[in-house]
Amino acid sequence: MTPIRHNASGGSDNDTVLDAVRDCVLAVGVRRTTLTDVARRAAVSRMTLYRRWPDVRSLVGDLMTREWIAVATGAIPAREPGTTARDMLTEGLITAVRAFRAHPLFRKILDVDPELLLPYVLDRRGASQEALLELLSGSLREGHADGSVREGHPERQARSVLLIVQSFTLSLRTMTDEDDPDLASEAFLRELRGILERTLTP
């Protein structure tokens, strides 16, 4: 599996700050979070924050990169004997969608500050998306090598897969109108599994 490289946290000091901004966002949302609040929770001065982050949105951007990459890498299943790269990729993606949708920070942003995600859906790729594409491309190349994934341009395939998975992650609740949304979500994830299998199988 291709390793993901990122510098969103940059060390334990920055992790302390990102932990603080996460706590603030979970408590009051992004719009009501201030650098003063973050500095107080992290026990650092505001000038310490300003030297690295000019505003709360840049802080939250680094936080999202750290959290989303952790979700994605945590969803990668352990390789079992006889398991193909396609099996691992499909299982990892389903697990990741489920984990994203249960993640407290993701749910808070989606509920309170959804406009924060719009640039990464409509205008540009963010650091976490680039890292996810790197991970996907590596997995697809492994699938090409073991014959479990249809041949194709790995970067283009990775982008196509991310578009599919991203739509299920961000928009699934707009399509679940049953009485039991959790049961409906699992039904849609079974559909996603079928889509991915048909997309990737040679």
Rank of each mutant, 00 (worst) to 15 (best):
M1Q: 09
M1Y: 09
H6V: 04
N7G: 14
N7I: 09
G10S: 13
G11Y: 05
S12E: 14
S12I: 11
N14W: 02
D15E: 14
D23G: 07
L26A: 06
A27N: 07
R31M: 07
R32Q: 14
T34Q: 09
L35H: 01
L35G: 15
V38N: 09
A43L: 10
L49F: 03
R51A: 14
W53Q: 08
G61H: 11
D62R: 08
M64E: 13
R66A: 15
W68G: 06
I69V: 15
A70P: 00
A70M: 05
A75H: 07
A78N: 11
E80F: 00
A85D: 09
R86H: 05
L89C: 03
I94H: 04
I94E: 08
A96G: 01
A96L: 04
R101T: 11
H103Q: 08
H103A: 06
P104N: 12
F106P: 00
K108H: 10
V112A: 12
V112K: 02
E115S: 06
E115D: 15
L116I: 08
R125E: 11
G126Q: 06
S128N: 11
S128I: 05
Q129P: 00
E130G: 06
L133T: 10
E134P: 01
L135C: 02
S148M: 04
R150A: 15
V161D: 09
F168I: 02
F168E: 08
T169P: 00
L170E: 07
L172S: 15
R173S: 13
M175P: 01
D180W: 02
P181H: 08
P181C: 09
P181F: 02
L183M: 10
E186G: 02
A187D: 11
E191H: 14
G194I: 10
E197I: 07
T201F: 00
P202Y: 06
